[in-house]
Simulated scan of single mutants.
Amino acid sequence: MEWLTKFPQLDDQYLSPIKRGIDTEFRMFTRTFGDSIESFFSPLQSLLIFFENFMTSTPWPIIVLGLGAISWLATRSFKVVAGCTLALLAIGFLGMWEDTMKTISLILVCTFFSIAIGLPIGIVMSRSQRFQATVQPILDVMQTMPPFVYLIPVVMLLGIGRVPGFIAVVIYAVPPIIRLTNLGIRLVDKEVLEAADAYGCSKWQKLVKVQLPLALPTIMAGINQTIMMALGMVVIAAMIGVQGLGQTVLQAIANQYFASGILSGFAIVGIAIIFDRVSQTYGRRLQRHRGGSHD
């Protein structure tokens, strides 16, 4: 009965050559095309460096006033603006301003690219059932596969640094904006679409003037989730050389700096609260306008 306790599997003498063959082929691929791939991503590297330098070199009062103004324009809420301002000031007083700015710069670029990638895919998914059936399993894999797994090929191709961290964050953070863009467009009232058709709207006009505006609150919820998931990748991205608060957390773990690690963690939470409150409040404002009320 011993065979009942052991799961049948391929003999190692057959499986090991397959593994070695795959590893060898991938190493040959990286040696052959590695330089070309790095040159392809060099503009992205320059963009990430530019945003990081901009955020770290801009005087802190300008950053605080700028983010406060963006918060006010998005939320029209003094409470949210005051909370964002106090959180940024507290981070600065605790000596984590530069690391925080590096983290914010990465999150902003990753969010922008996630929206640029996810919005069109979500729109196409909402229009094609076949495309949705194809993309849905891919999104499931992207969200459930541990980030360390897809970090392996990225690091082998591009080494360590900003670009691999950016790719890892985008892969992890882009599914929510795709899913909720698709969902928001599909939930648009069919009677409204029929009215648009009756007025002779083309497919493009119907998308831009009817479906996207009505789906915008749901899309904003997707952007909110994308930002939160990007922030969740900060520490993991630090393992492959991305500077910022995540690197401080890793150093605290390695050297058992309890206070430093806790403060860095609170700084990450502070950034998350800022982005979450601003995006959620903006989404609620859009929802109220959708219902016909005004601030």
Rank of each mutant, 00 (worst) to 15 (best):
T32D: 05
G184Q: 03
Q129K: 13
F33R: 11
V141L: 13
G83T: 14
S264L: 05
L231V: 12
K209E: 14
I177P: 01
Q143M: 13
W3S: 07
T134A: 09
P176E: 07
M28N: 12
G270C: 12
P217M: 08
K190C: 01
I223A: 02
P217N: 06
Q256A: 09
Q136H: 03
F40Q: 03
A196S: 14
Q256C: 00
A267F: 11
F113Q: 02
Q280C: 05
G161W: 10
L151R: 00
Q45W: 02
N182P: 00
L73E: 06
M96H: 14
K206M: 14
L86T: 11
I240L: 11
L245G: 10
R290W: 06
M156F: 10
N182S: 07
Y150K: 08
T32G: 01
V155W: 00
F258V: 15
R20V: 04
T144V: 11
S260V: 10
S202Q: 01
Q211C: 13
Q251N: 14
I22R: 06
I268K: 05
K190H: 12
I240D: 04
I227Y: 06
V80K: 03
I177M: 01
T134R: 00
I123F: 04
L65A: 13
F112H: 02
D197S: 12
C201S: 14
T30F: 00
A195E: 08
I171Q: 09
N255G: 04
V249S: 07
P217C: 07
S16K: 12
L108H: 02
L263Q: 09
L158S: 04
I268H: 07
F131N: 00
W97S: 10
L4M: 09
G261W: 03
K79P: 00
V149T: 14
T24E: 12
Y150L: 08
S105F: 11
S42R: 05
L157K: 01
L10F: 03
S202G: 11
R186D: 07
V249A: 07
D11L: 07
A196G: 15
Y282S: 14
M156H: 03
A272E: 09
R127D: 05
D11W: 05
I171V: 13
V170I: 12
V154K: 00
S126I: 01
L214N: 15
A254Q: 09
M145S: 11
F166G: 03
F29Q: 08
I117V: 13
G246W: 02
S71M: 05
Q280N: 09
M125G: 08
D295L: 12
Y257W: 02
A195T: 13
R76K: 14
I171A: 11
K209G: 03
K209F: 15
I160C: 02
A133N: 05
Y199F: 14
S57R: 15
A133I: 00
G265N: 08
M229T: 06
A272L: 13
Q9P: 00
L86W: 07
I160D: 00
I123S: 03
V155L: 03
G122A: 10
V278I: 15
Q211D: 13
F113L: 06
